[in-house]
């Protein structure tokens, strides 16, 4: 089967790739572009471990086709820090120990970034419902919610 040629922007860089028509964005990121920060926990959009931001919209990259990203902007976990300067959410996740195994962490960070972009001052309930599409099996979410609350305070002050 002939590949589809796609030109897109990932983390600010122009990226061109060939993919099969039925290949997901997650497979393209992981298997063709070496961006393995997005994880496959289910492949059915239930766990959020593959979360990326597509044109300012939070999506599960396992539910988007690679070919659909033509001419669009994709933000992944690999683009979250600026050089060696961590995003406040990344810093707060470390300080609060908001990760144990860490497999869900990239998805949570992307989802939390999207949440705070749309609602810079969320209540605890808004954080809990805003992150309800991301599964974590280790933490019980307590420290994740606290890290997001703390990051929101830092980001408002910035």
């Amino acid at each position: 089967m002939a590949g589809v040629a796609v030109s897109t922007t990932i983390n600010g860089d122009t990226v061109e790739f060939l993919c099969q028509a039925d290949e997901t964005l997650l497979d393209v990121l992981r298997d063709r572009l070496g961006l393995t920060g997005a994880k496959e926990g289910c492949g059915t959009g239930d766990c959020g471990a593959c979360s990326v931001i597509l044109d300012d919209r939070l999506v599960c990259s396992c539910l988007v086709l690679g070919a659909e990203t033509e001419g669009r902007r994709v933000e992944t976990i690999e683009g979250m820090a600026h050089g060696d300067r961590l995003h406040p959410l990344q810093q707060k996740f470390l300080e609060h120990a908001a990760l144990q195994c860490g497999i869900c962490t990239p998805g949570f960070l992307i989802a939390a970034k999207d949440l705070l972009a749309k609602n810079p001052d969320p209540t605890e309930e808004e954080i809990r419902f805003g992150l309800a599409g991301n599964l974590c099996r280790c933490t019980g979410y307590d420290k994740i919610v606290r890290a997001v609350q703390d990051a929101a305070i830092v980001m408002k002050g910035a």
Binding site: T36, G37, E78, P106
Partner: peptide, 21 residues
């Protein structure tokens, strides 16, 4: 004490390598 874990940065930047990575 409660220092930051040594594998932390890799895990918040997507660089940590899991089974499928």
């Amino acid at each position: 004490t409660r220092p930051i874990r040594p594998d932390g940065i890799d895990k918040v930047t997507g660089r940590a390598r899991y089974g499928a990575d």
